[in-house]
Design a protein around this nucleic acid. Structure first.
Length: 330
DNA sequence: AAGACGTGGCT
DNA sequence: TAGCCAAGTCT
């Protein structure tokens, strides 16, 4: 992880000044500093990558032996789920299914069962579907091409870029919530990025991308790690930040977010909670479960039925004759 | 394009 | 405590 020889590069050669970059570095209405920050990545890449070399966590999917499949599995699991909760499930998963073809030949319900309590179990179904597609269309190897990755179930813009970058060292803008926050603060000068990813953010991320593949993929991992460990959503620790001295938000006095508060997602009493309870029963069961057993997880019959129907139509639950239910075999 | 979609830890 | 937050995707 930290074995890479430290070869400082002339910052000016990392990313040339481009018209596109200097055209849109700062949101016009942003309460940033009077002087626009350096719109190029030159001043950011070197310190952030050097910091990463020293402070990166030793995560299993970052080790060489993880391979593209390990990277891909980790990316699915990390979608909206914290690292600490992913770690044990990831280890079990790759030990049991070391290659896409190993997972592809299992019933989808086994993927859902092995997903455990990571949440958003449709991800398990999609990862299984991706393994099937990889086995059928790509000879069992995780595709290297961004467009082919994007075509797989459960892989969107972020995950396609992440797999291409982390597994294959390609040059892509990897724009996750961590990177968005780092750029919002360091470059744009605001506390939080917009609720939904904007074209301006993508433009900025592309403008900041180092020219060569090797540096670009390290920058992707490093900027993400900085957001995860230092430039966090709350209680950021600027004294540990390698680019604190040039952070537009900090230089502006760390003004509080002004826009609309992020929509809080209520959970108690929702269909999601009911679905979770139903699926928990089915995950633990070794045999098909009678409707009467499922009925015990929620007392309101209309919502309970709606939740179960939803699970069935999502393919997470398979109904059998006689009012029995189980995780899907097909 | 706003909302659905799990789960658990932290403040 | 109640809300916020965590490497998004899909419709």
């Amino acid at each position: 992880m930290t074995a890479t020889p430290h070869i400082p590069q002339p910052p000016s050669t990392a990313v040339p000044v481009t018209p596109a970059a200097s055209a849109t570095p700062v949101t016009p209405s942003a309460p940033g500093p009077a002087a626009a920050p350096d719109p190029t990545g030159g001043a950011l890449h070197e310190p952030v990558i050097t910091w990463f070399d020293e402070h990166a966590r030793d995560l299993p999917w970052r080790r060489p032996e993880a391979g593209p499949w390990g990277v891909m599995v980790s990316e699915f699991m990390l979608q909206q789920t914290p690292v600490n909760r992913v770690l044990p499930v990831y280890e079990q998963w790759v030990a049991r299914w070391p290659r896409p073809a190993d997972l592809a030949k299992e019933p989808p319900g086994e993927a859902v069962r092995a997903w455990g309590r990571l949440g958003y179990p449709r991800r398990a179904l999609r990862l299984h579907g991706a393994a099937v597609a990889i086995t059928e269309r790509h000879g069992g190897d995780v595709p290297t091409d961004h467009a082919q990755l994007l075509a797989l179930p459960g892989i969107g813009e972020y995950t396609a870029a992440a797999v291409a970058s982390f597994a294959y060292g390609q040059r892509h803008a990897v724009l996750d919530t961590n990177v968005r926050r780092v750029l919002a603060r360091a470059v744009t000068g605001v506390q939080y990025p917009p609720n939904a990813t904007t074209a301006a953010e993508r433009r900025l991320a592309r403008a900041l991308l180092p020219d060569d593949e090797r540096t670009a993929s390290r920058w992707a991992a490093a900027s993400m790690e900085l957001g995860a460990l230092v430039c966090t959503a709350k209680n950021e620790t600027c004294h540990r930040c390698p680019i604190a001295a040039q952070c537009a938000w900090r230089l502006a006095g760390k003004p509080a977010h002004d826009g609309p508060a992020r929509r809080g997602q209520t959970y108690a009493g929702t269909d999601r909670q009911v679905r979770g309870k139903l699926l928990a029963v089915l995950r633990e069961a070794v045999a098909p479960v009678p409707q009467a057993v499922l009925d015990r997880v929620w007392d309101e019959p209309v919502q309970r039925a709606r939740a179960l129907d939803g699970l069935v139509s999502d393919g997470l639950v398979e109904p059998l004759p006689g009012g029995l239910y189980r995780l899907p075999l097909t």
